[in-house]
Design a protein around this nucleic acid. Structure first.
Lengths: 355, 355
DNA sequence: CTGAAAGCGCTAACAG
DNA sequence: CTGTTAGCGCTTTCAG
């Protein structure tokens, strides 16, 4: 049983009982115009005479009218919304890109819906589904590795997408990103050039994180290319928390032949590792060199300052958002773009002591 | 000019040209049922016979059908969506609560739309408007201070809300939060009890951040209550960045009568301040005591470990989300709830050296 | 510059 | 257990 939307007296919000929220019809009636005109006031104000516009706007303000984006999106087939999926919000490196994306999107009137997958593939698939349901007009994803049918679903839904944080070395999916492999190569090369022969690795879980996998591979390949053999007992795949980096370093320090340098594929883990060295009385960089990855703000606020890889998080986000929106409006695929990373040499790396 | 949705031959996605995405009608037709039945498969599967359900589900899978949440929300008047507005994503303290909110919401089938205001009141008003447009069923806000007509707009739109991060000491707006004033009192009391008489303050901008204001007031009141006079030249309102805390400490150290202790109303600023002390050769805590606020994970990974105030970010978020959802489903206002904070004494505080 | 009318894709009684 | 029938609140031709 459907009750009439509004009391017949036409009194809108404010009167008896619980007036339901005003609709475009209420505004139109009260302003003495058609709903089409109210709609135009929002979407093509220049096509409405100033007098009418003022009248309509007054009614809108009086009622605190908020138009229904669901109905609008349904009728217009344009949600002006982008979907973003990131693995975590706890690592501030994603905060940088997310912020840049939001800002770039907002500048051209788009809104960003954020999903956080917590590094779970299932969770991510669900989030992508939800975003598609909400009719986002484009998707910004983190990394490339996901089940093929997910990509199929995205394609079937005619939603352009762009991959960030990982420049695909294989298949040609549209990505606006940097090359984790090369970035990690630069970090390891720095250590090798310094004279280190026994080098450890602390990185993310390569089974759920293709960026971590790239970095790990770069580590292993670089060592091998330099005639060194990567020691599996010196490789640690852990979560991106201080405590994980610390624990990994603890284990390494306890080894009979401890490494003279460690590449941490993440600044957070690197700082945890530094802390463990300090607690264990191992001087950095004299007795232990450490290279991080990300160049978080905190990297300059530890002692010594952290040598690390700077990634263009903000630029990547801004470019990805803009390219995606361009693609949406042109009805095409996103034009890929490769960004560069830099090795930032600071105070945590030096030649090995006994060399 | 509207072209027919689908080729008359009934061939759905996959055939010639650019088949538009499948709708509930396409699914219904191809499965030989009505749209109502397809709808039921999603919303009340137990009311559909297993045979029919299987048939429908097969068609759904084959087409990668993703139902339209816009249409669904419009027809059902339930978006199952919560709106969250936070000031920044760069400070990981908000990451904790945000994550907890997401998780709590997801557990009961709600989605969270996140807006980031960058500490701008105008931006925040716009975000709230956008969330209301999207027909979020509830709003989680940060802090209480905002123009009254914004609250009116929220009320007119019959959207329940809850305030976090600030337990209102004045008006009775529904909040699930802690008392910043008391928390800051505890920090300052600790310093005073240690024997400090000359104490500085570094906090956020109290004009755009009512939590910073509470903390500043607590600082000033506590000093006064102890018979000390707050020195305006020792009070710094800055952004929440390492560099701001560092710069403020730099200025304080340059003063003829430098303070023996500083309360930083944020861990990030506190760590920036610690760093400046270190660079300036001022020993912490011997020559300078520092208390932070938030208890970020990093607080344990600086040397010495930071004395700070622990805030229940995760618990607050989870409770806020649950309470809001309860309120939504009961059609009532949110039941307020006060949470507690703790002073965590670690290594950055000690009695003043010359006492 | 303005209005009438036909949907957008889905849900929700109601009837069968 | 399933289908029919009205909308949900808005945009968008097409006329005028």
């Amino acid at each position: 049983m459907r009750r009439p939307r509004l009391a017949p007296d036409g009194a809108a919000a404010g009167a008896s009982g619980a007036p339901s929220r005003a609709t475009i019809h209420d505004i139109a009636r009260e302003a003495g115009v058609s709903t089409a005109t109210v709609s135009r006031v929002f979407n093509q104000p220049e096509k409405v005479s100033a007098r009418t516009r003022d009248r309509v706007e007054a009614v809108i303000a009086r009622h605190h009218y908020v138009s229904d984006a669901l109905a609008r999106g349904l009728a217009s087939r344009r949600s002006r919304t982008l979907g973003l999926v990131i693995p975590t919000i706890m690592n501030s490196i994603y905060a940088s890109s997310t912020q840049a994306i939001q800002q770039a999107a907002q500048e051209v009137g788009y809104t960003v819906l954020i999903g956080i997958s917590e590094f779970s593939a299932d969770e991510e698939a669900l989030l992508i589904h939800r975003l598609l349901e909400r009719r986002v007009q484009g998707l910004i994803l983190t990394g490339r590795e996901r089940r093929p049918d997910l990509y199929e679903k995205i394609r079937h839904n005619r939603t352009p997408f762009v991959i960030t944080w990982r420049q695909s070395r294989e298949a040609a999916l549209p990505s606006i990103s940097f090359d984790n492999y090369r970035a990690a190569q630069a970090a390891v090369a720095h250590l090798i050039a310094l004279g280190h022969r026994r080098i450890g690795l602390i990185c993310g879980r390569s089974d759920v994180n293709d960026r971590a996998l790239d970095r790990r591979r770069a580590f292993e390949d670089s060592l091998q290319a330099a005639g060194l053999t990567p020691d599996p007992s010196l490789i640690f795949e852990r979560s991106f928390e201080f405590v994980d980096g610390r624990a990994a370093m603890h284990t390494m320090l306890a080894r009979p032949e401890r490494p003279t340098a460690v590449f941490c594929a993440n600044d957070i883990q690197a700082i945890g590792a530094m802390y463990e060295c300090q607690e264990a009385g191992v001087a950095v960089p004299r007795d232990m060199s450490i290279v991080g990855f990300d160049d978080l703000p905190i990297a300059r606020y530890v002692t010594p300052q952290l040598t690390t890889i700077r990634v263009p998080a903000g630029e990547m986000g801004a470019r990805a958002a803009r390219a995606l929106i361009d693609a949406i409006e042109a009805g095409e695929e996103v034009a890929p773009c490769a960004l560069v990373t830099d090795l930032v040499v600071r105070g945590t790396t030096a030649p090995p002591a006994r060399a």
